[in-house]
Amino acid sequence: MTHSPTLSVENLKTHFFTRAGVVKAVDGVSFDVRPGEILGLVGESGSGKSITGFSILGLVDPPGRIVSGAVRFKDEDITKLDEDSLRGLRGNRIAMIFQDPMMTLNPVLRIDTQMVETVQAHARVSNGEALERAREALSLVGIPAPERRLKAYPHELSGGMRQRVAIAIAFINKPDLVIADEPTTALDVTIQAQILHEAQELCRKTGTAMLWITHDLAVISALADRIAVMYAGRIVETGTADEVIARPLHPYTQGLLGSVPTRNQRGTRLTQIPGMTPSLLNLGRGCAFAARCSKVLPACADEPAVAEPSPGRQVRCIRPLVEVPA
């Protein structure tokens, strides 16, 4: 196995040119994912996690476009590829599980038709063989009576089942890279554990690299090797999963972890981060979190540099620099 990353994103900027102004949905994002590694991407709703995923796959529609940066998949910059070559990669070497399963599923085709098509786009196998692989893939994501569910149309499945069919389709060809966007949002704990087990198996056995986008901190702390936290189009903190959950450095990450309901506050008001998400339309130079931050300093009006308190541990905040570490 090589040690170079499967995916390397460098200073990616994806902006939407709307009539109201430029929405800087992704504004200078960099990270690597190595073979067999799971990188968790968490962050505020609307901070640019999905658009980061879409950009990697070349799926950003006008008025949005990648304005700068590189996306290297196995050392090749795929932002430079034409649409045909990109389509060849998608669903074959790179798979995406969309936040909305209906972006994967065609509403007018039966599940078996869609799955057989995916298998045969990748491998030259008979219909019978492809159907058998599809049945197997459905049972691995915990769908009971898979041979009968194969004949269903998407609308005949429950929300969680649709989500699982989309996961099965993404995993079926054992891709090198999976971008999973909130894949288990509506799944109960037992079935979620089954899916996470399958994801771990795929990483371990096939060396698949995964970018796992989620807001479920309990899941990501147990699943990911490393975590990146996004806020207003930028990554504000990275580190190993243990470090980020146990000792968050960025005030946004601290606020996020403080909002998780605990068992002893039943019925009481939950802690929320004060204020509203900033508009991505006219972001200034300074720290985008400053207006909501309880630790804000005058210097936060300037663009905060990225500090690296230890190797692989990064934070875009001036606080860790001026504070004596505890």
Binding site: G142, H197, E198, Q200, S221, D225, D242
Partner: peptide, 15 residues
């Protein structure tokens, strides 16, 4: 099975 904010990476078991 209520999940808690564990700090350990764990291996998930199949059903």
């Amino acid at each position: 099975e209520v999940p808690r904010l564990g700090r350990e990476k764990r291996k998930f078991a199949p059903i």
